[in-house]
Amino acid sequence: MPAGNTRILAWLIAMPALLCAVGLPLYESSDVAQPPAMADTFVEALDDRNVEHAYLFIRQGQDPNTLVRFRDDVRTGGREVQVSPLMLAVAGSDDNTAAMLLSFGARMDYPPNRYVVCLAREMGMDGFVDSQMSTASEVECPPPSGAEFPLLAYVD
């Protein structure tokens, strides 16, 4: 094969690997230089059902047993309530975030969480209750509210 043809063919075959060799470090170094997109507040992370972001707040010292102010159309019908993060996660049927909160400090005996088992059952999270809430049997739940926004029935 003439040397020129061979060289062109060799370059063509090697081109994707060369592009990768140059492009990968360039792209990744510029990507790493930018801070990762992150929820602004703990409540926003809970609202977005983003368990990784919510965990970052916990990791940075956010107390999972502190009430947060929350309002939306789906869970509170637009009314602002003070609610525990665990109740908020359960109200959104967000079992990942609820599991994370229970894993990293959320207490079942924290008074605002006393009806979390009841809310979870009302939200259809029976499997979650059985596998994650060891004290579930000790809770006496009021009759299911059947309300449009079950969370409101369990917050003061």
Partner: peptide, 14 residues
């Protein structure tokens, strides 16, 4: 990582 942040409580119960 996600499993690690969501599973400890389940593991402690199970």
């Amino acid at each position: 990582h996600r499993t690690w942040i969501t599973s400890p409580n389940w593991s402690r119960v199970t």
